[in-house]
Amino acid sequence: MTFSVPLVQTRALGLTLNGQSILSNITLDIMEGEYSAIVGPNGGGKSSLLRLILGLQKPTSGTIALFGRPIERFDAWHRIGYVPQNVSHIDTHFPATVEEVVRMGRAVHRPWYALGYGAKEREIVTTAMEQMSITHLMHRRIGELSGGQRQRVLIARALASQPKLLILDEPNTGVDTHSQREFYALLKKLNTQSKMTILFVTHDVGVIADDIKNVICINGALLSCTQPHEMLQCDTVTQLYGVDAHVMHHHHH
C-alpha cells in the first residue's frame, strides 16, 4: 500500500519543559520511501522530537499526524519500528536470548489467545534474523554480544514487526567504526531494496552520507530541511553547532 500522505507530519510543534523551550515551531514531512536523518548538537532537541513522534511525550503546542492520522487517534504502532540507543539501554544480565528478543517484535501481532508460535510467525522472525545476519547468534544471550551485534538484534526485533517506517535513535552510540560502516550499508539496503522509510537521529554530522535524501537540522528549532551536500556547507554546520566549521568532503568508493 502506497501513501500519498506523509508518514510523519508535524505542524508548528513545540515542547516546553519546566518553563524552558526545548523545541519550537517544528514543521516537517517525512514521505514514504525517504531516507532521512535528524542532525543537531547534543541537547538540541533531537531525541525530544523523536519522543514526540513516537507518542512517548505530549507536545506543548502544534500537531503530529502519523500515516495520515492525528497521533491521538493513531493505533497502528506496529507499522513503526523503533530502535533505541543500543548499548546504554540493554541490561546485560537480562536472561534473554537473541531469538527471544527478536520475537518481541511479533508480540503485538499475535491474538491474545495464541499460546505458541505458528510456522508463519517463526518464518518472519527467522527472516528478520537473516536480514541482520544474526541467525548464528540466535541461542546466545543478549548480554554476551558486542555493541554492533546488539544493535543488529534490536533492528531485527524492529524488522520482525514488519514496519513501514523505521526510526533509530543515535544508532552509532557504542559501536566501532567498522560496524558503523556495515550498519549504514544495511540501512541503505533496507531503504532501497525493502522500500522501508528510514528516519534516524544523530549528533555526528560525519556520518551523513550522500545516499541520505533528506537532512533535518535541529537546534531547538528547525534550521533547515535539505539535501546532504547542501547541509554540509560551512555556514549550515556553523549555524547548527555554533562553532566555525570547515567541511572536507570525502567520497566512499
Partner: peptide, 23 residues
C-alpha cells in the same frame, strides 16, 4: 500470566519500546 507472557516479557525488557510498539 500465560496469555500475556510475551507482552509482559517485552515490557520487562524495555518498557519504552514496548509502549511504542502499541503494547
Amino acid at each position: 500470566i500465560v496469555l500475556h507472557f510475551e507482552k509482559l516479557f517485552f515490557v520487562a525488557f524495555d518498557e519504552e519500546v514496548a509502549k511504542t510498539s502499541g503494547i
